[in-house]
Simulated assay, not measured.
Amino acid sequence: MDYYVEAISVKKRSYKTEVYRIRPLKELLGDLRLSEITPKHVVAYRDRRLATPNPKNNNLPLANSTVKLELMLLSHVFSTAVMEWGMESLINPVEKIRKPKAPPGRSRRLTPQEEKKVLGAAFRHPNHEFFAIVALALETAMRQGEILAIRWENISWAKRTVFLPLTKNGDLREIPLSRKAYIVLHDYMTPAREGRVFGYTSSGFKSTWRAFMQRLEIKDLHFHDLRHSAISSLLERGLNTMEVAAISGHRSMAMLRRYSHLLAYKLVEKLDPKPKRKKNRPILRDQLPPYPALITHYSNCVVVDFPDFHDLRVGASKEQDAIERAKGILLRKVVGILCDGYEPPTPSFPDSIGVPSSKSRIEMISPI
């Protein structure tokens, strides 16, 4: 096993993970030669590991998927010994045993309300990079490691793309940037000629995300679930599976299907498409609807937040002043979106917005 680490694992991107995964194999099978390991030994290892308490929660056993990955690694050790180490007579005992059944893949994605809540809170996070990372995950379907590894010299502002020279599956990939993703990198961040875009390390960002979720009191939401949400959103926007796979980097349609969790109500219009209406000049008033605002009274000020616009927050010493200022800023925001040729977001239903405390209330505010 030590030789496998030195000769094989060290060449893999998953080197650290593999070293960690080899520890129990060495501990429970390390006193045996490869030629001495039989299916009986592997079955005993499997059953013992399945009964081992989970280090993250001692009330639960190790996940089936964890034990299955360890067995797959052991199987690869045998395959490598046969093909590369001159041990042609060796028989792989892992192939002869029943593997733990892997659980179904996660189907968690953000609800529309959760997405607004997450983006709004991320925008107010003390580290401005945190919001940019969250927004890019939802717009590009990139993995956490891919986002943290983005370099300024790999961004093409003219083509509006990000080049990823190294991805999880080893392929090169070029990611198209949506308008929102472009604004995040070009306007929200401070572009440079070269170097890493983000200063977060992988472990540092994971710790920040855990604390962020606890503060928002959102249950069972992993950062990787944002990738699920982004892929589903791309499919709902009308991109076909080949186009989405080119963005997400999936090699097989089976994996892509596992990651896509389409919202049924967004598919209704595709089942019964509305007849195309003649292009008439839209009525401006209809494009400037009232939006729900969260009005919160603090000891020395009143703050107005718009859940449909994560970057709109207005404060003043008096409520009426705060509301008047909020109207003006809301108007400029909506008109700016219209001038860019895009549709403003559909106002949320007031009942769908959670009121955080007795000091807050929801009120509809019109920009005109």
Results as ranks from 00 to 15, higher is better:
M1K: 06
V5C: 11
I8S: 07
I8C: 09
S14D: 09
I37L: 13
D47S: 03
N59R: 12
N59C: 07
L62R: 12
L62V: 04
A63M: 07
E88N: 12
S89M: 10
E95D: 11
T111P: 00
P112R: 09
V118D: 04
A122N: 08
I133P: 00
I133S: 01
A135Q: 05
R143N: 02
I147E: 06
W157P: 01
K159R: 14
R160E: 13
T161S: 00
T161A: 01
P165I: 00
L172P: 04
S178R: 01
K180Y: 00
M189R: 14
R196H: 05
S203C: 08
K206R: 15
R215G: 00
S229H: 11
S229W: 04
A230S: 03
A246N: 01
G249C: 09
A254T: 07
K270L: 14
K274W: 14
P275L: 10
P275K: 11
L284Y: 06
L284P: 02
D286F: 06
P290C: 09
T296F: 05
S299K: 15
V304M: 02
D305Y: 12
F306E: 02
P307I: 05
V314A: 01
K318N: 04
L331K: 14
V334N: 01
I337A: 01
D340W: 05
S348K: 05
D351H: 09
S360C: 13
M364R: 12
I365V: 13
